[in-house]
């Protein structure tokens, strides 16, 4: 695995960005041999640029999407809030004319017109949310995944105004009581922070595919966009795909085969 070894110096560097790096440095200054080191997990799935292809031909009705949405929301402890205003969604479905705004026309074929489409964070190449965030609580990883650091978010919701896809939700109240079945492997969120799809970064890190991919019976595929032999590149080469609002130049990483 490339660039996996990260010396403790970097670790100290990270903490130096915050406050109080000194005690850490002092504590390890005496150990002249080799200090502690931090690595990625050996089994982690990696890519230069993650992307997703959704084959909408493999879906027929709303029921086909239920297990996918349920799997994601269950694994990530996404709360089910009764009040519509407070709704939180990581992945959900909507009609063509809403997902691909201003691209519908009167004579669209019946299948596309009535077929629900999956909507989630686009993990943009040039994410407007990341640019807007005043604390870098939302950031883009080297592999293209746009993530939230819930510890740092101040809840200003600038990212929600910036996102042209409506992919972000805000915790208008404590979400805990509304998490139906807690998944102990993943934290919940607290009131006052923004959240969204995280491309299952926590699963990729331990070698697992994203939850939606697993629940989709092959209709959703993720892979490395920069690897010409990857499964996503294969799908993109052999099928006509569209993306949401490509004219904004954000460079969404979610492709739809229609």
């Amino acid at each position: 695995m490339k660039n996996s070894r990260r010396s403790f110096l970097k670790l100290a560097g990270i903490s130096a960005l915050g406050l109080g790096a000194k005690p850490v440095l002092n504590a390890f200054a005496s150990s002249d041999e080799h200090g502690p080191e931090i690595f990625p997990n050996q089994e982690a799935l990696t890519a230069k640029r993650w992307a997703m292809v959704i084959d909408t031909r493999k879906f027929e009705s709303e029921e086909d999407f239920e297990p996918i949405v349920a799997a994601c929301h269950k694994i990530h402890n996404v709360p089910k809030l009764k009040e519509k205003r407070h709704k939180i969604d990581w992945i959900w479905i909507d009609d063509f004319k809403h997902v691909f705004t201003y691209q519908e026309h009167e004579f669209l074929d019946d299948r596309v017109k009535h077929l629900p489409f999956l909507v989630l964070c686009n993990h943009c190449e040039k994410p407007a949310c990341v640019r807007a965030c005043p604390t870098r609580a939302t950031f883009k990883r080297e592999d293209g995944i746009v993530l939230m650091d819930f510890h740092r978010c101040i809840g200003c919701r600038f990212c929600m105004a910036a996102c042209p896809y409506g992919s972000r939700s805000f915790n208008f109240r404590d979400p805990r009581p509304f998490v139906e079945e807690e998944n102990k492997e993943f934290p919940t969120r607290m009131k006052g922070v923004v959240e969204k799809c995280n491309f299952c970064a926590e699963r990729l890190a331990v070698g697992k595919m994203p939850a939606c991919v697993e629940a989709s019976n092959g209709a959703i595929v993720v892979g490395d966009l920069h690897d010409p032999d990857s499964n996503v590149r294969d799908l993109l080469k052999n099928n006509y795909t569209i993306r949401r609002k490509p004219y904004l130049g954000a460079g969404p990483a979610i492709y739809y085969i229609v």
Binding site: R6, L11, S15, G20, P36, E37, N41
Partner: peptide, 22 residues
């Protein structure tokens, strides 16, 4: 708390999840 802070940043922001001590 310093260790937790460093761990938090490296797991959340760098996806580095393995710590090897001295």
């Amino acid at each position: 708390m310093q260790i937790l802070d460093i761990w938090r940043d490296s797991v959340v922001r760098e996806a580095d999840r393995v710590y090897i001590n001295e």
